Simulated assay, not measured.
Amino acid sequence: MPKISISCSSPIKDIETTKFLHKTLGWALGSASNMLAMGEKGFFYTCQLYLSDHMEHDKKIRAIISFFQSKNIPLTIIEIADDEDWGSVDPDNLGEIKINEAQILNELNSSDDYGD
């Protein structure tokens, strides 16, 4: 059951995106704006997949990817194993654990728990 985190690949200042994080993920507007301004180091969504709340995470991940693609804002998605700790991740060396949007969507689509 992998763990993922999602951030913007580059720092952005965009009110629509800030409002999206506020509405979809419950971030306060100021906090959402700060996370987006941090770019790749401002992870605004983190979860562990395939637990009892998987469908909720699946829905949010798909909404995030869809929204950011519609705005042409690239995302950074990192994935670690369930037995790894986020504290061991080097924020200056994310390349080895990055996955792209197609990879996470394929992973979600191939999940036994996935359904419409």
Rank of each mutant, 00 (worst) to 15 (best):
Met1Lys: 15
Pro2Ser: 09
Lys3Arg: 14
Lys3Trp: 02
Lys3Ser: 10
Ile4Trp: 01
Cys8Asn: 08
Ser9Leu: 15
Ser9Cys: 13
Ser10Cys: 08
Pro11Ala: 11
Ile12Ser: 10
Ile12Phe: 07
Lys13Thr: 15
Asp14His: 11
Thr18Pro: 00
Phe20Ile: 02
Phe20Met: 02
Phe20His: 02
Leu21His: 01
Leu21Pro: 00
Lys23Thr: 08
Lys23Phe: 08
Thr24Gln: 10
Trp27Ser: 04
Ala28Tyr: 07
Ala28Asn: 12
Ala28Thr: 09
Leu29Asn: 10
Gly30Arg: 07
Gly30Tyr: 10
Ser31Trp: 12
Ser33Arg: 09
Met35Ile: 03
Ala37Gly: 07
Met38Leu: 15
Met38Ile: 09
Met38Ser: 14
Gly39Trp: 10
Lys41Ile: 13
Lys41Gln: 14
Gly42Ala: 10
Phe43Met: 11
Phe44Cys: 06
Tyr45Asp: 01
Tyr45Thr: 01
Tyr45Lys: 02
Cys47Tyr: 03
Cys47His: 01
Gln48Thr: 14
Leu49Asp: 00
Leu49Phe: 03
Tyr50Ser: 07
Ser52Gly: 05
Asp53Trp: 08
Asp53Cys: 05
His54Cys: 11
His54Asn: 07
His54Glu: 06
Met55Lys: 14
Glu56Cys: 05
Asp58Ile: 00
Asp58His: 05
Lys60Pro: 02
Lys60Thr: 08
Ala63Ile: 07
Ile64Val: 02
Ser66Trp: 06
Ser66Gly: 04
Phe68Ile: 04
Phe68Thr: 06
Lys71Tyr: 12
Ile73Gly: 03
Pro74Ala: 06
Leu75Trp: 00
Thr76Met: 07
Thr76Asn: 14
Thr76Val: 15
Ile77Trp: 00
Ile77Asn: 01
Glu79Phe: 05
Ile80Glu: 03
Asp82Asn: 13
Asp83Met: 05
Glu84Arg: 05
Glu84His: 03
Asp85Ser: 12
Asp85Phe: 10
Trp86Arg: 05
Gly87His: 12
Gly87Ala: 13
Gly87Glu: 12
Gly87Gln: 11
Ser88Gly: 05
Ser88Glu: 12
Val89Asn: 03
Pro91Asn: 08
Asp92Gln: 12
Asn93Val: 11
Asn93Ile: 03
Leu94Thr: 07
Gly95Thr: 13
Ile97Ser: 07
Ile97Ala: 09
Lys98Asp: 07
Glu101Tyr: 01
Glu101Ala: 07
Ile104Glu: 00
Leu105Glu: 08
Leu105Ser: 05
Asn106Ala: 11
Glu107Val: 06
Leu108Ala: 03
Ser110His: 14
Ser111Glu: 06
Asp112Lys: 15
Asp113Pro: 01
Tyr114His: 10
Tyr114Pro: 00
Tyr114Met: 06
Tyr114Asp: 06
Gly115Phe: 10
Gly115Ser: 12
Gly115Leu: 09
Gly115Ile: 08
Gly115Gln: 12
Asp116Asn: 08
Asp116Met: 09
